[in-house]
Lab assay of single mutants.
Amino acid sequence: MEVRTIKVFTTVDNINLHTQVVDMSMTYGQQFGPTYLDGADVTKIKPHNSHEGKTFYVLPNDDTLRVEAFEYYHTTDPSFLGRYMSALNHTKKWKYPQVNGLTSIKWADNNCYLATALLTLQQIELKFNPPALQDAYYRARAGEAANFCALILAYCNKTVGELGDVRETMSYLFQHANLDSCKRVLNVVCKTCGQQQTTLKGVEAVMYMGTLSYEQFKKGVQIPCTCGKQATKYLVQQESPFVMMSAPPAQYELKHGTFTCASEYTGNYQCGHYKHITSKETLYCIDGALLTKSSEYKGPITDVFYKENSYTTTIK
């Protein structure tokens, strides 16, 4: 009895394709271990004539594949690729409408935090270190965002349907971005203890939790000093293409032309909904596939993004 075979390709990165001759009487799992086709788990399936010449994702289970996976995804987590594939199996079914010149995501599976993050990423200057993220990001900007969303979920250790947080998501993504040249110098002034300067680099240099107003941050924000008295913390120097200011959701007025974009969060910790506000020729609110415009805006804002380049204080 002759062994019926077909020729397929296996890959971990969709760049390096490895030619395989597979036995049609055995499952993919018996031949390769966990195997995925377009995100779908085909591990328990036997090869079919229609699979001839198709590319299958496999887990990096030998040295060659491990090197290829690390170079593309910059992670050695053995569960990463499987999590990416199972997320992709959902995100490829989502709709990605162009809204006001940006790629958004039609609401499904509690994905409003991903839509808000995706919209924000198209408006701030950011370059990702893992080629996987950078490639998928370019495709997302062009309207094909399924891979990018699935990668975000995998890097953030999230599953489809789980509630997510924009600030946490951005923080994970910033860790995989090139923020080497970003720098922030802060000064804390206390009447009792004097003053202390701190220099922050990388992710810490672009994120701040405690106030939404970048102007206020430049002037000074009140913080408790270690001595128990009130101290003032203010920005001395900022070198970065953008800054992200966050605070627990509270009524906040966004003035046209003073910011790049913002995240609105309605609801409580267990259950809520994100919308995205962007400042173009007027203010726009993007909620999944829905767009509304207004000249002014007041609502429960939790993150505001500002364009920056270089700032030095005039406070002496």
Rank of each mutant, 00 (worst) to 15 (best):
residue 206 V to A: 07
residue 95 K to M: 13
residue 226 T to W: 12
residue 289 A to P: 09
residue 263 S to R: 03
residue 280 K to Y: 02
residue 254 L to F: 04
residue 188 V to S: 14
residue 128 F to W: 11
residue 198 T to H: 06
residue 250 A to R: 08
residue 199 T to V: 12
residue 39 G to D: 06
residue 115 A to P: 03
residue 220 G to D: 06
residue 64 T to D: 12
residue 91 T to P: 02
residue 191 K to E: 08
residue 247 A to Y: 07
residue 90 H to S: 12
residue 140 A to H: 00
residue 153 L to Q: 02
residue 232 T to E: 09
residue 69 A to C: 09
residue 316 K to I: 12
residue 275 K to N: 13
residue 225 C to D: 06
residue 268 N to Y: 09
residue 296 E to P: 08
residue 216 Q to W: 03
residue 114 L to F: 01
residue 81 L to K: 09
residue 275 K to L: 02
residue 67 V to M: 15
residue 17 L to R: 10
residue 141 R to E: 08
residue 287 D to Q: 10
residue 134 Q to R: 11
residue 200 L to I: 15
residue 9 F to V: 12
residue 23 D to C: 12
residue 173 L to E: 00
residue 266 T to C: 12
residue 37 L to Q: 11
residue 124 I to R: 03
residue 235 L to V: 09
residue 262 A to H: 06
residue 257 G to F: 03
residue 90 H to I: 11
residue 220 G to M: 03
residue 148 F to D: 01
residue 43 T to H: 08
residue 90 H to Y: 12
residue 125 E to P: 07
residue 96 Y to K: 04
residue 15 I to L: 15
residue 28 Y to E: 07
residue 60 P to M: 00
residue 99 V to Y: 06
residue 104 S to R: 00
residue 194 G to L: 10
residue 147 N to Y: 12
residue 12 V to M: 15
residue 263 S to D: 10
residue 93 K to W: 07
residue 256 H to M: 08
residue 217 F to C: 00
residue 51 H to C: 02
residue 234 Y to L: 07
residue 10 T to L: 11
residue 276 H to Q: 07
residue 177 A to V: 05
residue 17 L to M: 10
residue 152 I to C: 06
residue 116 T to S: 02
residue 239 E to S: 10
residue 106 K to H: 15
residue 45 I to G: 07
residue 56 F to Q: 12
residue 36 Y to F: 08
residue 275 K to I: 03
residue 59 L to S: 13
residue 95 K to F: 14
residue 217 F to H: 08
residue 253 E to V: 14
residue 299 G to Q: 01
residue 169 T to P: 05
residue 45 I to D: 15
residue 225 C to M: 02
residue 173 L to W: 00
residue 3 V to H: 14
residue 172 Y to H: 13
residue 267 G to I: 12
residue 171 S to P: 03
residue 84 Y to C: 02
residue 3 V to M: 15
residue 244 M to L: 01
residue 40 A to R: 12
residue 203 V to I: 13
residue 301 I to M: 08
residue 242 F to A: 07
residue 148 F to G: 00
residue 194 G to I: 03
residue 59 L to I: 11
residue 246 S to Q: 05
residue 79 S to D: 11
residue 212 L to T: 11
residue 250 A to L: 14
residue 111 N to L: 00
residue 28 Y to K: 00
residue 50 S to K: 10
residue 53 G to S: 08
residue 189 V to Q: 10
residue 214 Y to W: 09
residue 246 S to F: 02
residue 232 T to S: 08
residue 309 N to E: 14
residue 22 V to P: 06
residue 75 T to V: 15
residue 153 L to M: 10
residue 263 S to F: 04
residue 110 N to L: 00
residue 254 L to P: 05
residue 34 P to F: 13
residue 307 K to M: 10
residue 154 A to C: 06
residue 89 N to Q: 09
residue 148 F to H: 00
residue 88 L to R: 01
residue 227 C to F: 05
residue 197 Q to E: 04
residue 39 G to L: 03
residue 267 G to N: 15
residue 79 S to F: 04
residue 187 N to L: 14
residue 304 V to F: 04
residue 64 T to L: 13
residue 253 E to A: 15
residue 267 G to W: 06
residue 139 R to P: 01
residue 164 G to C: 05
residue 168 E to W: 00
residue 22 V to A: 15
residue 263 S to N: 15
residue 195 Q to I: 11
residue 197 Q to S: 09
residue 251 Q to P: 03
residue 156 C to R: 00
residue 239 E to M: 08
residue 153 L to E: 03
residue 253 E to Q: 07
residue 197 Q to K: 15
residue 205 A to S: 09
residue 21 V to Q: 10
residue 134 Q to L: 06
residue 146 A to T: 01
residue 120 T to I: 10
residue 52 E to P: 04
residue 256 H to I: 15
residue 192 T to P: 01
residue 72 Y to I: 08
residue 217 F to G: 05
residue 149 C to L: 12
residue 124 I to S: 05
residue 271 C to A: 15
residue 122 Q to S: 00
residue 170 M to Y: 03
residue 57 Y to L: 08
residue 191 K to I: 03
residue 206 V to L: 06
residue 280 K to W: 06
residue 71 E to T: 15
residue 122 Q to R: 01
residue 139 R to N: 08
residue 93 K to T: 11
residue 201 K to G: 06
residue 3 V to A: 13
residue 293 K to F: 08
residue 45 I to A: 11
residue 265 Y to P: 01
residue 233 K to W: 07
residue 62 D to G: 09
residue 199 T to L: 10
residue 272 G to V: 05
residue 50 S to H: 15
residue 37 L to I: 09
residue 221 V to K: 07
residue 205 A to F: 01
residue 238 Q to C: 01
residue 242 F to E: 07
residue 281 E to K: 07
residue 126 L to A: 02
residue 29 G to Q: 08
residue 272 G to T: 04
residue 77 D to H: 04
residue 304 V to A: 06
residue 224 P to Q: 13
residue 92 K to R: 10
residue 232 T to G: 07
residue 189 V to R: 09
residue 254 L to H: 06
residue 146 A to H: 07
residue 31 Q to L: 11
residue 16 N to W: 03
residue 195 Q to K: 10
residue 10 T to V: 12
residue 65 L to D: 08
residue 73 Y to M: 01
residue 236 V to Y: 13
residue 222 Q to K: 15
residue 262 A to D: 06
residue 260 T to K: 03
residue 140 A to M: 13
residue 25 S to T: 14
residue 143 G to N: 00
residue 136 A to N: 06
residue 143 G to M: 00
residue 266 T to Y: 15
residue 129 N to F: 05
residue 55 T to W: 06
residue 190 C to Q: 04
residue 159 T to W: 10
residue 33 G to Y: 00
residue 82 G to L: 11
residue 64 T to S: 09
residue 300 P to W: 12
residue 259 F to A: 05
residue 160 V to E: 01
